[in-house]
């Protein structure tokens, strides 16, 4: 599977409060509504200009702070196909997988791209293609790929329990 998209570039320590402000965490439940507030306190232009398939490229510790799952969900709902970062905060990393959002760790991409560049990711080979250069990342194990491809943990458990019953 390959994904290709435009780049939104951000720095280090992008925390879950700026991705999805705490004031909405107990009042917004609709994913489409969540998307409208994605990255609101970091980049107000994001939710207006984001297009389906866009890729976020960031520095280290992406998604640090609160465990709020909406941080991953709002990006996915906004159309983001993957987040490529130098490193991820651990709860965000789990939440991304469980929301069906590709979270890919690579420490070089952020230094090589600018906003609106195009990046292509080969999820099978574990390659990110940036301006004709191929950068490696550790491909996900099959189990994790299945969760993401099912659309997240909930659809995955539903489909696997159904299979077991059959």
């Amino acid at each position: 599977m390959r994904i290709k998209g435009r780049v939104w570039k951000y720095g280090d320590n992008v925390n879950t409060d700026v991705i999805f402000p705490g004031k909405y965490t107990y009042s917004i439940f609709d994913e489409g509504e969540m998307a409208k507030h994605a990255l609101e306190d970091l980049d107000p232009s994001f939710s207006k200009d984001v297009k389906a398939g866009d890729i976020i490229v960031a520095g280290k510790n992406f998604g640090c702070g609160s465990s709020r799952e909406q941080a991953a969900i709002c990006l996915k709902a906004a159309g983001v196909s993957a987040v490529v970062a130098k490193s991820f905060a651990r709860i965000f990393f789990r939440n991304a997988i469980n929301a069906g959002l590709w979270a890919i760790t690579n420490d070089k991409v952020q230094d090589m791209v600018e906003k609106w560049d195009t990046v292509e990711i080969d999820l099978e080979k574990g390659e990110i293609i940036v301006c004709d250069r191929r950068l490696r990342f550790q491909p996900y194990p099959e189990q994790i790929k299945k969760i993401i491809e099912a659309g997240g943990l909930i659809p995955y458990i539903k489909s696997s329990t159904k299979r077991r019953r059959q």
């Binding site: 469980n98 929301a99 909930i154 458990i157």
Partner: peptide, 13 residues
Amino acid sequence: GIGRKEVAAIWAT
């Protein structure tokens, strides 16, 4: 800490 969906999964399994 874990995510909300993971708590639902623990409730179930």
